[in-house]
């Protein structure tokens, strides 16, 4: 009996100082997870410190930077006011969301509540493909179709916030639609059954039951679309006209944070004030993407289904 027990012990008790056979795997896996952490931290730290250079090393006033509407980096007395770009970014983002949200959510409801089969078989793949269309292609279409259209039928040069809004709006439309459709689809069927069972019409069911139930997820769809709009660079740059002043109307040339960075990063000397302020604009983009994350987290915490 004791002999047998010893034999079992020999077979089953871990040998000391023998490396666990899982060890090598764990190293590889932990390494990958480590790269993700390092990348996220490095981006945040490097871009923050580089973006603060303008204020620390070059002595530009952060208050002027955030409140002045003048952007004259090449003057004798240079002024670095980022307001026109901040305004441009927010204007494009909000207007694009105003355009894409009703269309996207409406289409999502059409796909999930009205024409399920058709939506599933036909619209879904189209939307998935369109999510993947590169943004420069949207910008190019804007340049060749939307800008001339605005010039001929609405006025101005065609380049401006309106063109930017339409391009970005169309660009984020498939994103908003596909996330909103996922949200509607994940609603439990008994919500619908319960509403129809008490004699509600389809519209009443959608309006009183389904939309309230899916609201946090639908808002998430809009916010994700806005985040994409806020960070979009090239498509906007191609159609917005790239002026440095606050525009007076939607059809006047304007600029956004991303477009000014895109345009000037290559033209300015690395390390100069004119270059450093661009990194400060980049820092605003970084901060905004953190704010979008916080908003999305807030929304997903309220998700009921």
């Amino acid at each position: 009996m004791t002999n047998q027990s010893e034999a079992v012990k020999e077979r089953l008790v871990k040998k000391k100082n023998k490396r666990s056979p899982e060890f090598r795997g764990k190293v590889i896996i932990l390494g990958s997870a480590g790269v993700i952490i390092i990348a996220a931290i490095a981006i945040t730290l490097f871009l923050t410190s580089k973006g603060l250079q303008t204020f620390i090393a070059n002595g530009v006033s952060p208050i002027e930077f955030l409140t002045s509407t003048n952007w004259r980096p090449t003057d004798e007395n240079p002024v670095y006011g980022a307001v026109p770009f901040i305004f441009g970014s927010f204007a494009v983002t909000l207007l694009a969301a105003l355009f894409a949200a009703p269309l996207g959510i409406g289409s999502a409801i059409f796909m999930t509540e009205i024409a399920r089969k058709w939506g599933q078989k036909f619209l879904q793949p189209v939307i998935e493909i369109l999510v993947g269309i590169p943004s420069v292609v949207y910008g190019f279409i804007g340049l060749t179709v939307i800008v001339p259209f605005i010039r001929d039928h609405i006025g101005g040069l065609g380049f401006g916030l309106l063109a930017g809004t339409i391009v970005v709006g169309i660009m984020i439309l498939p994103t908003v639609t596909s996330i909103a459709a996922d949200a509607m689809r994940s609603l439990p069927q008994n919500l619908r059954d319960a509403s129809y069972a008490i004699g509600a019409t389809r519209w009443q069911t959608i309006y009183r039951v389904l939309i309230p139930a899916a609201l946090p997820s639908l808002l998430t769809a809009i916010v994700l679309g806005m985040a994409r709009a806020f960070g979009e660079a090239l498509a906007v740059q191609m159609v917005i006209g790239n002026a440095r002043n606050l525009p007076d109307s939607l059809v006047e040339p304007a600029a956004t944070l991303t477009t000014i960075i895109t345009l000037n990063m290559g033209h300015t000397t690395f390390g100069s004030v004119e270059n450093n302020v661009l990194w400060s604009l980049g820092l605003i983009l970084l901060v905004m993407s953190y704010i979008f994350i916080v908003i999305i987290r807030f929304l997903s915490a309220r998700r009921k289904v």
Binding site: I41, A227, T258, I261, G282
Partner: peptide, 16 residues
């Protein structure tokens, strides 16, 4: 961290 990386605008990634 994954969420941060996923939501960074591509131009910001380019700057990094």
């Amino acid at each position: 961290c994954i969420e941060v990386l996923a939501s960074l605008p591509s131009i910001v990634v380019g700057m990094f």
